[in-house]
């Protein structure tokens, strides 16, 4: 892009804005915020396990939590399918859960997320009624799931289908979002997208009446694999 009047206008505006900002007097000095210290000093409730708190909070946001074990999770997932009866389930290839999930439903009910969005968009909006994803963790204090969308599991997989099923390992439940992002060192290599998801999408824009399924999923099912941790 050569001589571009918008580029020139940008540069002029940038120059003028920085000139004014740089000319402004310094503010009262404040200490560098110690966010880690703030979270470390906060008391964590001791009367209830981390997992129990996660489940309680997630349910309070209308997420359904299905508890299972590392050995039994395929059967538990089959139970979710039997209950929700997805006609077409979208899933990513090559993930830790892909093969097992594929074994639970007939091939014609599976839709693999194999091509870029443009090629699947219409189907995704009109036909696919469920999506299943892995998670990178969860937050106990708010009942939230953490997702880092990947080429295998793109952003829209947890967004467009009306039912989102998420598989979560108990040992990846953190107390706070701060603990999750610092333990997993997110800032070392920020993914293009990180999502914290708490319950299905919702709105209260009409007369403050709470309605689920505004633009995203109407239902969120969390398959919680109890593999220790979460004490």
């Amino acid at each position: 892009m050569s001589a571009n009047p918008i580029r020139d206008a940008d540069a002029r505006a940038r120059g003028a804005i920085f000139k004014r900002l740089r000319a402004a007097p310094a503010g009262e000095p404040v200490a560098v915020p110690d966010v880690a210290g703030y979270y470390a000093a906060r008391a964590v409730p001791q009367d209830e396990s981390r997992t129990a708190r996660f489940i309680r909070h997630a349910q309070s946001w209308r997420a359904e939590v299905v508890e299972t074990t590392p050995a039994d999770w395929p059967q538990a997932l089959a139970g979710v399918f039997a209950d929700k009866r997805p006609a077409r389930l979208l899933l990513g290839r090559g993930t830790a859960i892909a093969e097992t999930v594929a074994g639970l439903l007939p091939a014609e009910q599976l839709r693999w997320y194999d091509e870029p969005l443009a090629g699947i968009k219409k189907e995704l909006f009109d036909e696919v009624d469920a999506g299943i994803t892995t998670t990178v963790g969860a937050v106990a204090e708010t009942g939230s799931l953490l997702l880092h969308p990947t080429p295998a599991e793109p952003r829209t997989l947890s967004l467009i289908p009306p039912l989102h099923i998420a598989v979560l390992h108990e040992r990846q439940i953190f107390e706070t979002l701060h603990e999750a992002m610092s333990t997993q060192r997110w800032t070392d290599a920020m993914p293009t997208n990180v999502l914290m998801i708490t319950g299905p999408s919702k709105t209260a824009d009409i007369q403050r009446v709470l309605v689920y399924g505004a633009h995203g999923p109407k239902e969120l099912v969390i398959l919680l694999i109890r593999d220790g941790g979460g004490a």
Binding site: A13, L117, P149, R155, L177, T198
Partner: peptide, 30 residues
């Protein structure tokens, strides 16, 4: 206590990714 979504975006679609915008702009207003 929280919103349904906290959406943390660090750039447009990268090579190999299947969705996300191919082009991303940020307009900073004074």
């Amino acid at each position: 206590a929280v919103t349904t979504y906290l959406n943390i975006i660090s750039g447009p679609r990268r090579d190999g990714e299947k969705d996300g915008p191919q082009e991303m702009h940020l307009v900073l207003l004074d």
